[in-house]
Design a protein around this nucleic acid. Structure first.
Length: 880
RNA sequence: GGAGGAUUAGCUCAGUAGGCUAGAGUGCUUGCUUGACGUGCAAGAGGUCACUGGUUCGAGCCCAGUAUUCUCCACCA
């Protein structure tokens, strides 16, 4: 007696046990194995602050599918896992936690804070890894890395110094985005532009030596404290006479020049712009062109500094109010307009960004970027879908120097040292003990840390041991495919490409597989603030990881966003249950192993049909996966398993199983088991848990489906003729069911079925399939004959090519209805015939279309015409 | 302002190389205790493939334009 399975599939009973089994057997572990080809994927390292969300679920499902598939294909696969220290995200969280205890960074000091951060990492950093395991991720956990590991940190320092020595890293004063809340620089990419309702203040600046005024308009009046000029367009006729004159900056009472610069848009506002080089990126550029001085009016925390005179100490918004009030009192405020404008905010804390001039570290991008652009253009680097390549290119071609310093503590501290005596700058891995220039021992390290993406950019090779020449780096690098969301093409993908080319001389990966976002059912982004996020763990808990994985990968083209519907997960849970029950059915019938002696010659046409089908399926699924069409492959598996295998094949086979004297029973069992195992393997990358559970229950030869081999197309399973024959039978069954359904005949009521065909081949098809045909078509008896002798005219009929099927019911059949049905069928046939005729009478079509297509149409025509004859005959006989 | 999507059944989406009589899931209607499964089985209704032109023997698919819509980038003080 075979092993038994429960009536419904319960993932919670299965998943953890199976995952543990895989771990115990080290199936995820990758070894350098020169007899195999390597296949490597590096995980996009989740933040240690992170909690598993749908984005991770998406990402990891795709990677896991590729890794499991390639492993089955015989590659030595490495899925390199790890986490990212996520400097600013983590630091923000820790500061918040500290604030609850009434502590600040200052209280703890740098060392104390870092100690706390590491504790935090130990406590929360592993959480997301545990959650990834629930997805079934087959990462090599023994090789887990962290961006602030010793090895990875070493790679970061190495890269910094090499860049520096090459002249790519420089220190410079630039206008940067300052977050007064976090008190650090943030990169352009970390700024969110939010449209906000603000005001437009029109202010009069008196023209020096006259009673006249010039009117400017600003959204940030407080910055006037740092104004060093007023600008107009060089060709603006309204203001020609003022160019070169000076105006008196109100409140500050300082004379500043009126300059002409093309940057000014004559049509916007008053056509006059106040220039504040220290607090606006455009003004900064204008300032450089005109040699204007830069007056920083703000402290790091967003309050006005001593440059602000009476406003010193006020918060920037307090100062704004006060300034507006003072201007009004001096009668210099013309008007206040409502104005919507974009305000830059920090994506982590949402504080409004303040552009400020600071000394920062930069990476010069112009040279680095060239080979990264070339890699895409030459086709060496590919994006799937291709359109994302354009986004990548667009960014690289317009790139600005990368500001890499952050005024944070959590991260890789910049390996730059200053002599406190002579000011010498020393860039090297280890802290110098004395100044090489003046010999002083008073050395201080740069306070800043590096942008978190500086280390992520090295991830594909730093995780494999680079800059050391490790066997792993040698074997597993470069990686094969990078899987990630389109939202980090700039942050991460592009930076990995140029870093890898620069330091390893190779592309870090050949293909970038981009996926979209999972949105809520209304198409909105899942976000904390909206509270519309779906927790993947909750989904797994309710429906199982396999159902979630299948949901993620199907019903949507690669690279597009998708909406999350619980109903979809439910449908896929049902699919899992369907597979479960099909397997249960097979197991219940496998009494012993006598089916193992079955040979191909013993198979019936039905068996050959399904074998041939699974053979084709194997070929197609593999081809689809080669092209990263995972969703297409998955839906083909779904369709095959549910429709062909369950709804047709299993039903066809049942009479043979229930009939002890049937000689083909063992052949049926062999086929059931063989096809199931075959398709389970194809499905395994998508639904790893259930396939493993069934596989190990069904057979004992192999310990795990994970390490079994990927099925291949085999010529001996190619039964094209039998496939066609079974399709004829399916068509007959469908027609009969349709008629019975139209006539509301319940399945319990069996009917006599007559199959009439002049062709012996057709009669033979039905003869061979008599047993299951009767069951599927609800027949009491099946009579196969070459003419309609002995069949009453008031029988119901249906027509398939080359055969007419009659069902005499004992009740009187409504001849009118039968006639109508036939007339309708005739009409439909006629329109098809017309359509095909139209095509075939088109000389262009016959001459230019491929022969295959033309032949196809001809065959169709022949079939329809043949059926037409049958329909007409039938009509004639009932109307006579 | 620049770039890239999307527009196909009530809803959510597929449609791989132009050959299609346009598919799936879900929802809807009808019937079914058919010895794996009601998380099931069977049957059915439901579409001017946004619009206008063009290329082609042939267009849901390619090209041009229009409309609607989403996203990213840039951004005006």
């Amino acid at each position: 007696m075979g092993k038994m399975l429960d009536k419904t599939y319960d993932p919670t009973k299965v998943e953890d046990r199976i995952y543990q089994k895989w771990l115990d057997n080290k199936y995820f572990h990758a070894e350098v194995d020169k007899t195999k080809k390597p296949y490597t994927i590096v995980i996009p390292p989740p933040n240690i602050t992170g909690k598993l969300h749908m984005g991770h679920a998406f990402d990891n499902t795709l990677q896991d599918i590729l890794i499991r598939w390639k492993k089955m294909q015989g590659y030595s696969t490495l899925w390199q896992p790890g986490t990212d220290h996520a400097s600013i995200a983590t630091e923000v969280k820790i500061i918040k936690q500290m604030a609850d205890e009434g502590l600040t960074k200052k209280d703890l000091g740098r060392e104390g804070f870092l100690k706390r951060a590491w504790e935090w990492k130990e406590e929360y950093g592993g959480r997301i890894i545990k959650q990834l395991k629930k997805m079934g991720s087959s990462c090599d956990w023994e090789r887990e890395r962290f961006t602030m590991d010793e090895g990875l940190s070493d790679a970061v320092l190495d890269v910094f110094i090499k860049y520096y020595e090459k002249g790519y890293i420089y220190k410079g004063a630039k206008i940067i985005n300052w977050c007064p809340e976090c008190q650090t620089t943030i990169s352009e990419a970390e700024v969110d532009h939010e449209e906000k309702q603000g005001h437009f203040w029109h202010i009069k600046y008196p023209i020096a030596g006259t009673d006249d005024f010039i009117e400017i308009a600003t959204t940030r009046p407080e910055t006037m404290l740092g104004d060093t000029a007023v600008a107009v367009h060089p060709e603006d006729e309204r203001y020609q006479h003022l160019i070169g004159k000076t105006v008196l900056l109100p409140l500050v009472n300082k004379e500043i020049p009126v300059i002409a610069d093309e940057y000014v848009d004559r049509t916007f506002g008053t056509g006059v712009v106040k220039i504040t080089p220290a607090h606006d990126p455009n003004d900064f550029e204008v300032g450089l062109r005109h040699n204007l001085s830069q007056i920083n009016i703000m402290n790091d925390n967003g309050t006005i500094n001593s440059q602000g005179g009476p406003y010193e100490g006020l918060d920037r918004y307090e100062a704004r109010k006060q300034i507006v009030k003072d201007l009004k009192e001096q009668d210099l405020l013309v008007k206040i307009e409502e104005h919507t404008h974009n305000v830059g905010t920090h994506d982590r804390c949402h504080a409004v960004i303040e552009p400020m001039i600071k000394m920062q570290w930069f990476v010069k991008m112009s040279e680095l970027v060239k080979p990264a652009i070339e890699a895409l253009k030459s086709g060496e680097l590919k994006f799937v879908p291709e359109r994302y390549g354009k986004i990548y290119l667009n960014w690289l071609e317009n790139i600005q120097d990368w500001c890499i310093s952050r005024q944070l503590w959590w991260g890789h501290r910049i390996p730059a040292y200053y002599c406190e005596e002579c000011g010498e700058l020393i860039v090297q891995k280890e802290a110098p003990t004395e100044c090489p220039k003046c010999g002083s021992h008073k050395i201080k390290q740069d306070e800043d840390t590096l942008d978190t993406w500086f280390s992520s950019a090295l991830w594909p090779f730093s995780t494999l041991g680079w800059p050391k020449k490790t066997p792993e780096f040698d074997y597993f690098y470069p990686t094969a495919t990078l899987v990630t969301g389109y939202d980090i093409i700039f942050f991460w993908v592009a930076r990995m490409v140029f870093s890898a080319i620069e330091f390893t001389g190779e592309l870090p990966f050949k293909t970038v597989l981009m996926h979209g976002l999972i949105r809520d059912s209304e198409g909105r982004k899942m976000s904390k603030s909206l509270g519309n996020g779906i927790d993947p763990l909750e989904v797994i808990d309710k429906y199982g990881a396999d159902a979630l994985r299948f949901t993620i990968v199907t019903g949507n083209a690669m690279g597009n966003d998708m909406r999350f519907y619980w109903e979809k997960v439910e449908a896929n849970r049902n699919f899992a249950n369907k597979i479960w029950n099909a397997s249960r059915f097979i197991l219940m019938n496998l009494e012993d192993t006598s089916h193992s002696n079955v040979k191909l010659e013993d198979l019936t046409p039905a068996d050959q049909w399904i074998l041939s089908k699974v053979n084709t399926l194997t070929q197609e699924v593999t081809e689809n996966m080669d092209k990263y069409e995972l969703g297409i492959a998955a839906s083909k598996l779904y369709e095959f398993l549910w429709e062909e295998f369950c709804d047709w094949y299993i039903e066809m086979v049942k009479p043979r199983l229930y009939n002890e004297s049937d000689e083909t029973k063992q052949a049926a069992l062999w086929t059931l088991k063989t096809v199931l195992i075959h398709v389970l393997k194809l499905l395994h990358p998508y639904m790893p848990f259930i396939t493993e559970e069934i596989f190990t229950t069904l057979q004992e030869e192999e310990p795990s489906i994970m390490i079994s081999s990927w099925p291949e197309y085999q010529e001996i399973w190619n039964f094209k003729e039998e496939e066609k024959d079974i399709e004829v039978l399916k068509q007959a069954v469908r027609n009969i069911r349709t008629i019975r359904s139209n006539m509301s005949v319940p399945p319990s009521k069996k009917a006599q079925i007559y199959v009439v065909s002049e062709k012996e081949e057709i009669r033979e098809i039905f003869r061979k399939a008599k047993a299951f045909f009767a069951t599927l078509a609800y027949g009491s008896t099946i009579t196969i004959q070459s003419n309609k002798d002995g069949i009453l005219d008031d029988a119901v009929s249906t027509i398939i090519p080359e055969a007419t099927i009659y069902m005499p019911f004992t009740e009187l059949v409504d001849i009118e209805k039968e006639k109508n049905r036939l007339e309708k069928e005739k009409e439909k046939l006629q329109s098809e015939i017309d359509r095909v005729n139209h095509k075939l009478s088109n000389a262009g079509f016959v001459n230019k279309a491929p022969q295959k297509v033309v032949d196809g149409e001809k065959a169709k025509l022949e079939k329809y015409e043949q059926m037409m004859v049958q329909v007409e005959e039938r009509l004639k006989s009932i109307t006579k």
